[in-house]
Simulated scan of single mutants.
Amino acid sequence: MATTTSVATTSALRALHAELIKLEKEPVEGFIVKANDENLFEWEVAIFGPPGTLYEGGYFKAMMKFPHDYPYSPPTFRFHTKMWHPNIYENSGDVCISILHPPVADEQSGELPSERWNPTQNVRTILLSVISLLNEPNTYSPANVDASVMYRRWKDSKGKNKEYEDLIKKQVKGTELDAQKDEVIVPKTLEEYCIKTKETPQSQSSVDLADFYDDGDYGVEDDDDDDDDECYYDDEDDSGNGES
């Protein structure tokens, strides 16, 4: 007789397999994913910096790890590319965002239950939320206080204080070598970001990323019908999707 744990694991594997197939058939601009052939609970992710933002031209590598009761519990999302961002922990690369928080009552967090994880969420909504988060940090409950202060200083000065901007641009520049190594062409224009990556999904999804994290900076051990020409990020500040 199957145990509750084994049933949950089987259900999670089915859900993840279905999501992977859907992403391969209906890719969304802004990211590429590659599931671990030996462990479907670990997905390698690469996010492209949205054009028109400080992250334009960036190629940011990360890992998603799914619990064995997925989708009833959220996965974790950890950047392996060194990131300086108000809602990303500097030392670990872990993303702190409401959608990845368990659906439990937590009055101190200030989050509404509707902002937290629920089983209707999926890999696609997570990745789109993370992409949006890059340019829309939540500075009211930061994971990196210093980055939050620096960002607010830049924002409040309307870009006159260049400290935050220069640091992010340097960070983006540093990802070029990884993109070259992985033989990935990073979209830098809005047309490339919104259309080209969707017209040639095979060229991106079939990239051999066997050495995806060989020299990551952190050294960690450890469904919708979308308009083809639509992009899924905006540039509004403090959207509230990065609660710690």
Rank of each mutant, 00 (worst) to 15 (best):
T3Y: 01
T4H: 07
S6Q: 13
S6F: 14
S6V: 09
V7C: 05
T9I: 15
L13V: 11
V28F: 08
F31S: 03
K34Q: 14
A35R: 07
F41M: 13
E42T: 13
E44L: 09
Y55Q: 03
E56L: 02
G57H: 10
F60K: 03
K65F: 05
Y72H: 11
T76N: 06
T81H: 05
H85F: 12
N91K: 14
N91A: 13
G93V: 01
D94F: 09
D106G: 07
E107S: 11
E107H: 14
P113G: 01
W117L: 04
V123I: 15
V123F: 05
T125E: 04
S129W: 02
S132I: 07
L133D: 02
L133S: 00
Y140V: 10
R152N: 15
W154D: 04
K158D: 12
E163G: 06
Y164R: 06
K169A: 03
D182S: 07
V184D: 14
L190H: 10
Y193M: 00
K196V: 14
T200Q: 12
P201Q: 00
V207D: 03
L209Q: 10
A210Y: 05
Y213S: 12
G216V: 05
Y218G: 08
Y218P: 10
G219R: 11
D223V: 12
D224I: 14
E230M: 09
D235S: 13
N241T: 11
